[in-house]
Design a protein around this nucleic acid. Structure first.
Ligand SMILES: [Zn+2]
Length: 484
DNA sequence: CGGTTTTGACCCGCGC
DNA sequence: GCGCGGGTCAAAACCG
């Protein structure tokens, strides 16, 4: 049964855009001794508190105009209002009616905000595209000028870069796999957003259903269906182009120092293979997400060849189901990083790139945590390196992690101040549980790039989408040993 | 008994 | 065509 399902799914769903994150978990030391853990749960302690905060946090990091954040918050607050209301059966009608009106206006407000947000993203994209066009022209001119004198290596570089920026703009001058990839990715993202908007609407609807009079109900329904139509028409456009096949898959990998064989990222994973890596004594394990029946998300776990205490986890794909808050944090971060990667923004941004594309990496932060972009084949990969930071994570016992940490994380300007914040987090040894924070911070750094619209969309999408779910799942760990 | 892990087989793209 | 390496399949074993 499962097999059939999976194989079919693979056939049908493979074109979903992909994200990969590799993470390594920090080493915990206690009295100088290393504690070996089978599976590190990064979120063990903060789980509940964090999940509440995460949404806000991410939004702040993205420096999104607060609309989306408000949207989220309003949503939850109105929900709680409702439950309170239920507890007061007596004051029923007037109260209910008032609240309904309030909610209605709230809904409309949200709707307006949704629209505004969309426009904003759209505008951003347009501006970004225009800028990129200019940049491309400039680059091209420069290239032409340099044709005669310049070094051939440089020429090579330009050749590589130009298509990339084209890719950013979404202008296709020739059929280029990476371009297809990009547009598909984009479409996926926008589709996701719309999906999330829809689902949000659904929840609102059901919420109202329970409490409103039939008349109001109808009015609301009318409005909702109008919205739904509008949104779905948008979606159709996206769907049409979604059929494009994905050629390359973006991956996000996270390196972290850990002794555990697997990282708890809030997802359930089923192991489907293990191979001996080429230049590596340690095998590489392949997992796929088992939370959703049709979920195509995969990850590979592998120890670093050089430093076996470093675990490299590579994520690829986007979940097609609801995630636990914890998993969502990872996933959104991951997808944000991947979209960033796919948008190619880092590659075309100033001075950050290395000459030879094939092994080029762009350092995104100067602190201990480094996010690097790699255009090396076969997959575009973004790597979040958390190894250094994890090393001095000695104060595992330190329970009273000062609030400062969270504060810095929640700062709206975090994107720009990532380096200091992230460094703080680690320096103060906020236990391994801060892993998601770290990844988020790293992502924030990435998305601080001016051309972050794609990442922004993805991140917002995944955050808005899954508002409530408490599924905490982690599959067992793996053992090393066999290979082919 | 259903889901997960194990593990050899299989597939596929790529360079020769 | 062949071998190789990366990746996946799937039957059997395993496990709660
Ligand atoms: Zn999933």
């Amino acid at each position: 049964m499962y097999k059939k399902l999976t194989s079919k799914m693979e056939a049908t769903c493979n074109d979903i855009s992909n994200v990969a994150v590799t993470q390594s978990s920090p080493t915990m030391s206690f009295n100088g001794k290393r504690l070996v853990v089978d599976e590190i749960d990064f979120f063990a302690e903060k789980k509940k508190k964090k999940s509440e905060v995460d949404d806000q946090m991410v939004h702040h990091q993205m420096e999104l105009p607060n609309t989306s954040l408000d949207l989220l918050i309003t949503n939850s607050t109105s929900t709680s209002n409702r439950s309170n209301m239920e507890e007061e059966p007596s004051k029923a009608k007037d109260n209910t009616r008032n609240k309904f009106v309030a909610m209605l206006s709230e809904l409309q407000q949200m709707n307006a905000e949704n629209r505004r947000l969309r426009e904003l993203v759209h505008n951003l994209n347009n501006k970004y595209n225009a800028l990129h066009k200019d940049l491309m022209k400039l680059t091209h001119k420069q290239h032409e000028n340099e044709i005669n004198g310049a070094i051939k290596e440089n020429d090579k570089r330009d050749d590589m870069i130009i298509p990339r920026s084209l890719l950013d703009i979404g202008i296709a001058t020739k059929e280029d796999p990476s371009q297809q990839h990009y547009s598909e990715r984009k479409l996926q993202e926008s589709k996701n957003i719309i999906d999330k908007l829809d689902s949000g609407k659904d929840s609102e609807k059901s919420m109202v259903d329970q409490h409103e009079s039939p008349a109001d109900h109808k009015a609301l329904w009318g409005w909702i269906s109008t919205e739904a139509t509008r949104l779905s028409s948008l979606r159709d456009v996206d769907q049409a182009s979604e059929t494009m096949s994905m050629i390359k898959k973006a991956r996000v990998s996270v390196r972290a120092r850990t002794d555990s064989s697997m990282i708890s990222d809030g997802c359930q994973w089923r192991k489907y293979g293990q191979k001996m890596a080429k230049g590596n004594p340690c095998p590489r394990s392949y997992y796929r997400c088992s939370m959703g029946t049709a979920c195509t998300v995969r990850k590979q776990v592998q120890r670093s060849a050089e430093d076996q205490s470093v675990l490299i986890t590579t994520y690829e794909g986007q979940h097609n189901h609801v995630l636990s808050p914890t998993a969502r944090a990872m996933a959104s971060t991951t997808s944000a990083a991947a979209s960033m990667l796919l948008s190619g923004s880092m590659l075309s941004s100033d001075g950050l790139i290395h000459p030879n594309i094939l092994e080029s990496t762009a350092a995104l932060s100067c602190s201990q945590n480094t996010a690097t972009l790699s255009a090396s084949a076969p997959f575009p990969t973004i790597t979040l390196d958390l190894t250094q930071s994890a090393t001095n994570n000695s104060s595992q016992l330190l329970q009273g992690a000062p609030q400062d940490n969270q504060h810095s994380l929640l700062s709206p300007v975090l994107a720009q101040k990532f380096m200091s914040s992230a460094t703080n987090i680690f320096d103060q040894g906020t236990e391994t549980a801060s892993f998601v924070d770290t990844v988020n911070a790293a992502t924030a750094a990435i998305t601080a790039d001016p051309k972050f619209s794609a990442a922004l969309m993805a991140a917002v999408t995944s955050i808005i989408g899954s508002s409530h779910s408490n599924i905490n799942g982690t599959s067992g760990d793996i053992q090393h040993g066999n290979n082919n």
